[in-house]
């Protein structure tokens, strides 16, 4: 990325994709908070109870469990996809490697050991466990974020579940008790199923459909049978 003949672009252009999605994340999170508090207030009104303020709602477990249950499923999706695409292929899909290239590939393919270059990241030159961890860092971070966000959805779901039970004059449940509740598993599965379908359909649709100019697609003129070409 530091080649002397590369044109230099400004910060905004260099990071346009990440910044755009970061901005869209904040806007849609705001939308979730606004529509969420409106929904809560409609229920409060129907039950003859007082209104809840936006700040109170944004600092409640009921809001955070809805955020975390969606985050966890996204990180589960990426964690599974990053690891599955090492070992499994889909013939003809730009999302996949060529059949026959399953596995972690050679040091030469991966520019490791004596195939490393001066520009290779630090951990590549370090060797040993540091290189081994760095070689799996994308999947490991996605997996760790899945576990953390899933745990966060469990504890916020537990707090929200208990505050609802208290409102109905029922005894609160323990955290372990909540992990056996249908509420927790329904929140998890309803998000997981959509992620699995989305990943599966992107993988197979990328065989037969094209998006000119997108690295998520093969070049428009490439044959359906060609795998792993992006354009």
């Amino acid at each position: 990325m530091s080649g002397v003949d590369e044109p230099t672009y400004g910060f905004l252009r260099n990071n346009a994709l990440s910044l755009t999605f970061g901005g869209l994340f904040l806007i849609t999170l705001g939308g979730q908070a606004l529509s969420g508090v409106a929904q809560v207030n409609a229920e409060q009104e129907a039950n003859g109870l007082g209104r809840v303020g936006l700040l109170d709602y944004a600092t409640s477990s009921s809001f955070l469990v809805d955020v975390m249950e969606n985050w966890q499923s996204e990180y589960l999706q990426f964690f599974l996809y990053v690891f599955a695409t090492v070992w499994l292929v889909q013939k003809g899909s730009s999302e996949s490697k060529e059949p026959g290239k399953e596995g972690t590939e050679s040091d030469r393919d991966q520019q490791l050991g004596r195939h490393a270059s001066a520009g290779s990241p630090g951990p590549v030159h370090a060797g040993g466990w540091l290189t081994a961890v760095f070689s799996r860092s994308l999947g490991l971070v996605m997996g760790a974020l899945f576990l953390l966000t899933w745990a966060a959805s469990a504890v916020t779901g537990w707090a929200a579940f208990n505050s609802e039970r208290l409102g109905q004059r029922q005894d609160p449940v323990t955290l372990v008790g909540y992990l056996g509740e249908a509420d927790f598993w329904n929140r998890s599965f309803q998000n997981w199923q959509s992620e699995m379908l989305a990943v599966g359909s992107l993988t197979i649709f990328a065989v037969y459909l094209r998006q000119r100019g997108s690295p998520e697609s093969k070049p428009v003129g490439v044959a359906h049978a060609d795998t792993g070409q992006t354009g």
Binding site: M1, S2, F11, N14, N15, S18, L19, G22, T59, S60, S61, L64, V65, V67, M68, W71, L145, L148, T149, A152, S153, V155, T156, W158, A159, N162, S163
Partner: peptide, 30 residues
């Protein structure tokens, strides 16, 4: 690559802060 690294670190920080915030709210029983 300094700007790119900054965006990467901001993403990581936002995600970890969100997770931390969720744990704090749950611990407070809110």
């Amino acid at each position: 690559m300094k700007g790119v690294r900054a965006v990467y670190l901001v993403y990581l920080a936002v995600i970890l802060l969100g997770i931390g915030y969720a744990f704090v709210l749950a611990a407070m029983g809110r």
